[in-house]
Design a binder for these strands. Structure first.
Lengths: 197, 197, 197, 197
DNA sequence: CATGAATGAGAGTTCATTCAT
DNA sequence: GATGAATGAACTCTCATTCAT
């Protein structure tokens, strides 16, 4: 596959991403993507066998970017409370976002493809996030910002909570206020009372 | 609609429920339900217009039963810790269950039908559960079983956490142990250390 | 499947037969048959899954008829020479026929479906024909019409020869004269010199 | 067309032959051949317009080789019975061969291309084989190895029989024993009883 | 009410063939 | 000459939905 092909493939992935954002995973057909890309029916098949393959590629690229963004956070000069707050507020923005989100498509995809594959992007992402938060809480406990007896479970608890907020946002819908209050609550369980902003 | 009709409609709903449990929501076709009911293609259309209508009815009946089951719990004679533990363990059983669950279908359904409708069963259920847990925690605080400064958010937190565990169980998969540890953690944030069972 | 359905199925088989006669086996698509029957695309699928199934049914009916026609022959009152001649002349007519013949389609079908299936119509037909001719030759030997030391192989020889003529007719093409001469030759190997007709 | 081109064309023909042996004629696509040759899609079109042209070339080369092999036979020092037996045994080997044979592809090809073209390789081959066998039988009659009143039809009879065995081998399937018995029978009609080998 | 045959739109997929490079 | 990306026609198959009976 030449240089040009790689660009075209990337073009397809980008366009397909928009379609998945728009329609979720299951409702998307090869035809949808063909039309979004304005290429021929057969043309798409030169690059991908089916929507599953395309979504996997979209997901792969997504996780690459996400990893970068997230791991940069902890190196900054700030208190642990600041860092955790920053992280949670970013998650809040992300999970309340209506547009340009693959959340729903990802869930749908995972419903269809439950049998855990080796390269389970979602799981890996989850676990690595847990690890980072755990480290952060431990650091916070050390310098007495936080109080916590089981940092590992506390970290996991935050991640599951976020997951719950995320899916709730996609289904019943939640408000920014609801998320804010939960963020406050998380801090309160860690022994921190946040000042009013 | 005569008596016979009502029975037939119920028969369809029951059979359809099995299909939704089996295949989720989106993959289910009218054909699937026709075959599951062993009725004629046209016959199904006399009762329901499409799978959406059928699933709504399934969901409606489901929530009726769930309410009953759940509200029965709190009347028993037990400590608040006991009651909360009982509730969480039941939720655990429910969310780890692989068979006979409409969880996935429900999520899929809500993805498709996001525009919040007045009769949003899921939301109502969620809110009523929050209320009950809140009352429970308040009672626990009163008789010094629990320590909690914001019972409302604590209750909401538990529900979002359960939601996170539920969706995780359906996508990346989680173990019973993971849930147990989160239950322990919840109690620890309420100032309770559970004895080993 | 009701009475009406059976008729429709038969209608499809009849129309499909025409298509197979016209185009052979492999070139025939479901679309061809749909058009020949003037029914809807999906309609055909109510009766048959694919062209293979349709052709099998065509073949099955064909062999039923053929069997009848052929087995009727031997009961007539005639010399063995007469009967064999009659048979061979009918075969001649059949194999020289350009229209209304499934020969080519059958060969094509067997190329595609070589793995011998239990109900191998072609093989059964062949063997039963061999048996009948063998009986005929034996009878002819008995009343001194024929001379033959190995009636079984002689019968088989005739059938293979006919097969050779048949395929040759379909490929390189042969004339009536060629067949006539081979018929004469067959009789000569059985010690019979046919009068000029 | 330069030297290099001729070599490439030959390379394509050789590879295509393998494909035709493998898949018959009709199932073979230009894509198959492109892949077998590991050349570009457009490249193939520089040499051949379609599979038909390619198969014609394969067939042409095939017949050249076959002619050579076959005509060499009769010059050897042996009785006519020996020569005919040798020929028939070679045909037997050939027609029972499963691998490396173009038989099925050839039949399929002739089904598609019935309109007898001037350069009908198959027909020519058939007729030249008939001539040679006829000569052989005549020679055998002369030196009293064979008894035969119509050597021409006898020769043609042998060739049609072989054709019948060949197509039967490709469709219903036949055993070596079946062929052996037919060879014996041919000799018996020529007044020869073969010794047991 | 109930049936189930029939329709036709639409999704997936494959390839012969072309053409800019 | 050679490449291989791109096109678009053609085919298979599945269902939601209708309608005569």
């Amino acid at each position: 596959m030449g240089d040009k092909s790689i660009k075209k493939k990337q073009f397809i992935v980008d366009k397909a991403r928009e379609v998945f954002v728009e329609k979720g995973y299951k409702r998307v057909t090869m035809k949808d993507i063909v039309e979004a890309c304005d290429i021929s029916r057969g043309g798409l098949y030169l690059y991908f066998e089916n929507t599953n393959q395309i979504f996997l590629e979209v997901l792969r690229q997504e996780s690459e970017e996400t990893d970068d963004v997230f791991s940069g956070r902890i190196t900054e000069d700030a208190t642990c409370v600041d860092i955790l707050l920053l992280f949670l507020q970013e998650q809040k923005k992300e999970l309340l976002r209506k547009k340009n989100t693959l959340v729903q498509a990802s869930y749908e995809f995972y419903f269809e493809n439950k049998p855990a594959r080796k390269d389970d992007v979602l799981k890996k992402q989850f676990e690595s996030a847990v690890k980072i938060i755990e480290k952060l809480i431990e650091a916070g406990v050390e310098n007495e910002e936080f109080y916590c007896e089981n940092c590992s479970e506390a970290a996991r608890n935050i991640m599951f909570l976020l997951e719950g907020l995320r899916i709730s946002a996609q289904t019943v819908g939640i408000t920014a206020d609801t998320v804010d209050k939960q963020i406050d609550y998380i801090f309160s369980t860690l022994g921190v009372i946040l000042e009013e902003e």
